[in-house]
Amino acid sequence: MRIVSELDEIAISSPIGSTGRALALAATALAAFLGLAASAMAQSEMLERGAVLFAAAGCANCHTDRKNQGPLLAGGRSLITPFGTFYAPNITPHPEFGIGAWSDEDFIRALREGVAPDGSHYFPSFPYTSYTNMTDEDMLAIKAYIFSLEPVAQESRPHELDFPYDQRWALPFWKWLHFEPGPKPLAEGQPDEVRRGAYLVEAVSHCGECHTPRGRLGGLDRSMWLAGSSDGAEGEKVPNITPDAETGIGDWSADDITFLLSMGLLPDGDVVGSTMWEVVSDGTDQLSAEDQEAIAAYLMALPPIEHRP
């Protein structure tokens, strides 16, 4: 066999004897095996990490038409906003109807820059304005997890937007006004736990997309960060979650917050309202206790803002 003869030649020309050669072969085989095992391990760790991030990022909430028992990530859930109705697209790994043909670079570009593989711009209903601050590594873990799911051949439904919000050509201008591509460091100079919480709240779970009021063109009003919004998705009021004692959650303890994130419970024994339940269930409840505590630490460290949505 050719390979063997080549190895023999190497062996002959090298100072190692036959025992050495056998050892070298064994070592090579072992290294190859360990390499495979390590990459399998890395792969399964990446999937696990991706599953948690996928849950915390709430991907399935918009990309699945749960109301009509639609298949996971096949798109179609409506997001009713003051600008019109958005329908999240199919992001299953189907090569034609989903994102199965996307490269790692395509995926990162979509989340980081809000740009599709064909160069068109996404509406900010897709919260790349938040995801932009995720690390490449976390984005790719999410991609790996999505690609491990079932591909679904279902066409995405186009958005139904009111004029002038339906003008996709205007999106670069909107982005210029309201979007700053990341990743930028969050909660700089704060303790590690708060910074981890900032990453989860701001980049991954994109809490600000609902809990922060928007201006006329749909950009977030950062001066009112997490201070609640009177026109959230589905026309719901979204509460102020800054630590203001009167209008926010200033009287909540850290574990009041973690009970909400892990079980959907409010301090009074009730459960959270409909949209937040979607966020908690198979969402923030999948985060580790440390991550939930980090979110609590971050929220409690925010400047309190008096605002009743």
């Binding site: 079980m263 459960v271 959270v272 409909s274 339940w277 979607e278 409840d285």
Partner: peptide, 8 residues
């Protein structure tokens, strides 16, 4: 969670 699922 059974409470939340039903209320939702």
């Amino acid at each position: 969670k059974t409470c939340g699922g039903c209320h939702q």
